[in-house]
């Protein structure tokens, strides 16, 4: 049995119809949905639900809650697609919705992810100060290093402040351009660039001990 796609889940229209929709790009699907083709929405959801789930998960760090937030993202897409400016990229719009929901979630959680980041950067004269690598006398062996590297890089991303983490994930994991990130986060290009640079710097500081 194959992976349950939304097309299989959402009804009984012929597969041919589904494959025709699969050939359409996002804008055409959005237009088809607005013209009354409900299957176009299911195709959009099918196309984006996994990547949005991973984006929200990397931003919030909460697997279960991420599913709820992605569900909510699609509900908002369904309800407000008529407001979507079809001259823009659908993916940017849907990421904007998911990003805002993730941001609200983190805000509501009232935990402070800034603590470690502030510890790391405390005492720096400026954000552009080059890193001074310490001469580590202790090097974990390879097995230990391999075992922990993966969790450390994930942890490092989680330790970034939310507004740095979002741009970092959008750029490094989702491959978004600076312009797209600016639109998704509602920031100007300069802010995106600055946040991304700081995020990379903090990320490097956190994982450097494990990368000999």
């Amino acid at each position: 049995m194959g992976k349950p796609t939304i097309a299989r889940t959402f009804g009984s229209e012929p597969e041919k119809r589904h494959s025709e929709l699969q050939d359409l790009d996002d804008s055409a699907l959005a237009a088809a949905f607005l013209d009354g083709n409900k299957r176009a929405f299911t195709e959009l959801a099918d196309r984006y639900h996994t990547r949005l789930l991973n984006f929200v998960y990397r931003t919030t760090g909460d697997r279960e809650r991420s599913e709820d937030l992605v569900q909510e993202t699609f509900i908002r897409v369904y309800r407000h697609l008529h407001r979507f400016d079809q001259s823009k990229k659908f993916s940017t719009w849907v990421y904007t919705i998911a990003s805002n929901l993730a941001k609200n979630e983190l805000r509501n959680r009232s935990r402070n992810p800034l603590i470690l980041f502030q510890t790391i950067t405390r005492g720096w004269d400026s954000d552009e100060r080059p890193l001074e690598w310490e001469d580590h006398t202790y090097r974990p062996d390879d097995l230990f290093r391999k075992r922990h590297l993966r969790s450390m890089v994930e942890t490092a991303v989680g330790e970034l402040p939310e507004h740095h983490r979002t741009v970092f994930v959008l750029r490094e994991m989702e491959g978004k351009t600076y312009e797209e990130i600016a639109e998704i986060t509602g920031c100007n290009l300069g802010t995106v660039k600055s946040r991304l640079n700081r995020a990379r710097n903090s990320f490097a500081v956190l994982i450097e001990p494990l990368l000999a």
Partner: peptide
């Protein structure tokens, strides 16, 4: 290393729930 981490998959109930 970060990119090599497998993506998480939505739970089986994600799409029926959305439906």
């Amino acid at each position: 290393e970060l990119r090599s981490i497998p993506e998480i998959e939505p739970s089986w109930e994600f799409l029926p729930r959305l439906q």
